[in-house]
Write a protein that binds this DNA or RNA. Structure first.
Length: 201
DNA sequence: TTGTGTTTTACGACCTC
DNA sequence: GAGGTCGTAAAACACAA
């Protein structure tokens, strides 16, 4: 029985820094071990080929774990960014609602909003449409017709989500659960108030 | 010195080619 | 059958108390 085989059977023996360096170099060149490389490394290191095989297996496992850890951290950062952006949007919605109440209080108290704003913690799982609508001008208050409105629309595009606030003195039609938004060319103001690209930092 | 947490080594079970 | 991954035990190591 050789000393090496004796040691491998009786206790775990750590490789020296120089041995590890040689293995690392070889591993970085190719993380799979062919039979020739295995026997070559074993004789260079003065260890049994079996130990080289095991070192490669453990090294691959460590690399994989580190890679997963890196991916996890990246996803965590993206999640945090998305959550803070979502909070910002809620603040913006609240601000616009206040503004709307102020504008509309002289003629009508009615403020409508879709369930998008109130019931969804994550607006990505709802239809990409939100609105605030109130009557801020002359004319009757009601779901079918109004004059002078403020609306917030969220729309999905290929590159992300746009949030538009529209103010108009033209009439808006109310249909189903939301307003029929004004044609931009006819509205008094259609303002891009935000643009989010989920997945970007 | 010792208790404890982390890293490395080694192996068996199972899978794939 | 050779060599891969996965899960785990245990030795080796680092370090605070």
């Amino acid at each position: 029985m050789t000393m090496d085989s004796f040691q491998s059977q009786t206790r775990k023996k750590r490789l020296t820094p120089n041995q590890v360096m040689l293995l690392e170099t070889s591993f970085n060149f190719n993380n799979k071990l062919d039979p020739y490389r295995k026997s070559q490394l074993a004789s260079q290191l003065g260890v049994p080929p079996r130990q080289v095989v095991i070192w490669y297996q453990n090294k691959r496992a460590r690399e994989k774990y580190q890679s997963l850890e890196t991916d996890h951290k990246m996803l965590q950062v993206r999640l945090e960014n998305t959550v803070s952006h979502n909070a910002m949007l809620h603040e913006e919605v609240a601000r616009l609602k206040d503004e709307l109440r102020f504008l509309g209080s002289s003629s009508c108290d009615e403020v409508r909003s879709t369930n998008f704003i109130h019931s969804s913690k994550n607006h990505l799982d709802k239809e990409p449409y939100a609105s605030l609508i109130g009557d801020a001008g002359i004319g009757p208050c009601g779901p079918s017709e109004s004059m002078g409105c403020v609306a917030l629309r969220v729309e999905e595009t290929a590159s992300g989500w746009f949030h538009r606030a529209a103010m108009t003195s033209h009439s808006l039609q109310w249909k189903d659960n939301g307003p029929v938004l004004p044609n931009p060319s006819k509205s008094d103001g259609l303002v891009l108030i935000g643009h989010s690209l989920f997945g970007e930092n």
